[in-house]
């Protein structure tokens, strides 16, 4: 499967078909990270984050792949690992390799948005299992509200819709509070 086919699968939420293929890039990332102050588990974590960035970014309107997917993932991992080293107050990155510190601009924006997404993810998790399941089923785009109502035992599509509204509103309220706390702390 070539890069553009993989991107097409990711764009249309058929991640299961291609993620295993993308994991074949992991050994290269492990090599890069373990030779720059990290261990195998660091590499797996960073690579997972890079795949999340790719999966999220690819769905945005106007996404184009300006390099090979392997290079794209490598540059994201390299950027994230350098960032992580900074956070750990370690700067042991070797500059001997020939890959320049260039990163796709959209990928950079997506990496910066990752923190916000992580917060939102934890807010959704804290809503409770029912709300989380309902929202995940709906926003995965794989089920219609009518089917979700049936699966989750709601009496009608309308009940499911109202429940979804309540869950979203609670999530927004909690997120608003968390954002406000963060703003206060960083002000």
């Amino acid at each position: 499967m070539n890069d553009s086919e993989i991107v097409e699968h990711l764009k249309h939420n058929r991640n299961d078909k291609v993620l295993v293929i993308l994991y074949k890039n992991l050994p290269v990332i492990k090599k890069m990270i373990t030779s720059n102050g990290g261990n195998s588990e660091d590499a797996e974590d960073i690579f997972q984050e890079a795949l999340i960035v790719l999966c999220m970014n690819v769905k945005k309107n106007g996404f184009t792949l300006s390099s090979k997917l392997s290079t794209y993932l490598y540059s994201i991992c390299r950027y994230m690992w350098k960032d992580e080293l900074k956070r750990r107050n370690k700067m042991v990155f070797s500059y001997t390799d020939t890959i320049k510190d260039t990163i796709d601009e959209n990928a950079l924006i997506a990496i910066q948005q990752e923190e916000q997404m992580k917060i939102a993810e934890s807010v959704v998790k804290s809503l409770g299992e029912r709300c989380k399941e309902l929202l995940e089923l709906f926003y995965s785009g794989k089920m219609k509200l009518k089917d979700i109502a049936e699966k989750m035992g709601y009496s009608s599509e309308n009940t499911a819709k109202n429940q979804k509204y309540k869950c979203i509103e609670t999530a927004k309220k909690n997120l608003r509070e968390v954002n406000s706390n963060i703003n206060t702390l960083t002000a």
Binding site: N15, D16, L19, V20, L22, Y23, K24, L26, E44, Q48, L51, I52, C55, M56, K59, Q113, Q116, M117, K118, I119, A120, E121, S122, V123, V124, K125, K132, L135, E136, Y139, S140, I168, A171, K172, L175, R176
Partner: peptide
């Protein structure tokens, strides 16, 4: 903005689940 963030958070959670499965397969 909040809605976009929430939808992003849900997508992230879903992708993480798929990644976990893919990693086991790998």
């Amino acid at each position: 903005t909040l809605q976009r963030q929430i939808m992003g958070g849900i997508q992230r959670s879903l992708v993480k689940k798929e990644l976990a499965t893919a990693f086991i397969k790998y």
